[in-house]
Amino acid sequence: MAGLGDVASMVGNRFVNNISGSFGSLTIHQWIRLVVIAGAYMLLRPYLIKLGSRFQMKQHEADEKASLEEAAAIAAGKKAPLSANDLRGGAAKKAPQQPESDPDDSDDDVPGAVVSGTDWGKTARKRQRRVLRKMLEAHEQALVDAQADDEDKDIEEFLED
């Protein structure tokens, strides 16, 4: 416990020494500059806060207006009400175009079809199948290379220099 008290007193002494050294060595020009900066901050801060609140209020009003217009469009029947997928953030999106066709990826996949948030598992499964297929091909290639090396060693036994 004595170590903790020593550390606290050391920190306190350093703080006092640094602050007194900083302000004790200021010239008159530096004092004036410090007072001007602090004063300008204290004078301008309330105006900057009011300006920020005005911008924030305008943004809130615009958001509220947009939500009221959307609610009116839904009530008038011009727009479909929100579905559970829309609320979850899974609004319908266009499916990305796959440059390569994959026979294993034919899970009722129509190019350009609309995909909802509930279909994320399908693309993950396709991606996993591609990764596994690439790993299997790499392993098979390594086995073929190893077998070719073994055959070369067998042939080298019979060669003479």
Rank of each mutant, 00 (worst) to 15 (best):
residue 15 F to H: 14
residue 109 D to Y: 03
residue 116 S to Q: 02
residue 67 S to W: 08
residue 85 N to I: 01
residue 53 S to L: 13
residue 48 L to K: 02
residue 148 A to L: 04
residue 134 K to G: 09
residue 65 K to N: 09
residue 5 G to I: 12
residue 22 S to H: 11
residue 68 L to E: 10
residue 31 W to Q: 10
residue 14 R to E: 04
residue 122 K to W: 03
residue 93 K to G: 02
residue 85 N to P: 00
residue 36 V to Y: 08
residue 54 R to W: 06
residue 75 A to C: 13
residue 134 K to Y: 08
residue 127 R to N: 07
residue 86 D to E: 11
residue 91 A to G: 08
residue 57 M to H: 11
residue 102 D to K: 02
residue 130 R to V: 02
residue 155 I to R: 13
residue 76 A to D: 06
residue 78 K to Y: 07
residue 132 L to I: 05
residue 117 G to C: 03
residue 155 I to Y: 07
residue 153 K to M: 08
residue 40 A to W: 06
residue 23 F to T: 14
residue 87 L to Q: 13
residue 3 G to C: 04
residue 99 P to G: 08
residue 117 G to D: 02
residue 20 S to W: 01
residue 133 R to Q: 11
residue 99 P to D: 10
residue 82 L to C: 01
residue 111 P to S: 03
residue 92 A to Q: 10
residue 122 K to V: 05
residue 156 E to K: 10
residue 35 V to W: 13
residue 148 A to M: 10
residue 3 G to D: 15
residue 83 S to E: 05
residue 53 S to P: 00
residue 88 R to K: 15
residue 54 R to H: 06
residue 156 E to M: 15
residue 103 P to V: 00
residue 148 A to R: 08
residue 42 M to N: 09
residue 143 L to Y: 01
residue 42 M to K: 13
residue 151 E to H: 08
residue 9 S to I: 14
residue 142 A to E: 09
residue 21 G to I: 03
residue 118 T to N: 15
residue 28 I to L: 15
residue 25 S to V: 08
residue 105 D to P: 00
residue 109 D to S: 05
residue 111 P to Q: 05
residue 41 Y to E: 06
residue 90 G to L: 01
residue 61 E to I: 13
residue 42 M to H: 11
residue 93 K to R: 14
residue 58 K to Y: 14
residue 36 V to H: 07
residue 52 G to L: 04
residue 140 E to K: 10
residue 41 Y to I: 15
residue 103 P to S: 02
residue 136 L to C: 10
residue 37 I to F: 11
residue 55 F to A: 08
residue 73 A to V: 03
residue 119 D to E: 13
residue 126 K to F: 01
residue 132 L to R: 02
residue 27 T to K: 12
residue 61 E to S: 15
residue 97 Q to C: 11
residue 145 D to I: 05
residue 70 E to A: 12
residue 70 E to Y: 04
residue 92 A to P: 03
residue 95 A to W: 03
residue 61 E to D: 14
residue 4 L to C: 10
residue 70 E to T: 08
residue 93 K to Y: 03
